[in-house]
Amino acid sequence: MNSRTGENRGAPAALVFNDVSSRDQKSGKARRGPRVEIAEVSFYVNEGEAVGLVGTPADGTSILLRTAAGSISPLSGDVYVRSRAAVMDAGTAFDLDETLRANVERVAMSLEFNGAKLKTAVSKILSRLGMEDEADSPCVDIDPLDVEKVRLEVNLYAGPTLLLIDEPLARGRALLDENGREGVERHLRLGGAMVLAGRDPRVMRRLCSRIIWLHKGRIIMDASSDEVARSYGRLDKVRDDKSKVEQIYRRYARHYPGLKIITQSA
């Protein structure tokens, strides 16, 4: 049972970040641009919950997702996951020169489907989206939105997982598509969880119950989707005035009370 002062969310936690600091691991010449870090980040996502993570990669959204996936070890603090984490970001995109079927097979294999189960999974995924006719075409010849829909479906097919999505435009559209929404709802109903990262809270507002706002590696707001989207929207109005933008960031950061997590284990 998880409880938050004055609040009880009921379902077991799917992802816990407890006072986590993390950063990209490359150093020296191997690293391009300034080092991106997240610092003292605490939040949790419950099973059956979709949470938005608004911010840019420079704010640490990608570092946070990769820390949750285990491809980056935290410098300090504790990260816990309940199930397998599946990542959908630029690094795990489909190979556009390969056929749609080959890409689906590859992802299904990495989700540990073998033999007859693999064949069944591939044909079910393609038929569920009505993509059998395009299955043997190279992805480069298929509408990018359709490719993203298939990619989402294959990641959802494996059953309850922690789905970590870094959201370019096509992926957001795939999520809002009827099949995508149904898939996500099914995923959450079965006990899966989702973190959707990106710089546009509009998609998150439609899919997520709450949004975490990350700025310069720190959480400055963790509230209902409507509240965060509204607050984030205020930035757009003053986007050209850097001092006002900074003023808003500072004000939200000052008022974010943080979250103290106390973990218990049987």
Partner: peptide, 26 residues
């Protein structure tokens, strides 16, 4: 920003049962 109070709220505490959970990558 009118919804923000003048002073930050008290830090909430969450008690989370991590039984059966694991560290990512393990």
């Amino acid at each position: 920003m009118s919804e923000l109070s003048a002073e930050p709220r008290e830090t909430p505490v969450a008690f989370i049962d991590v039984t059966g959970m694991r560290r990512p990558g393990t």
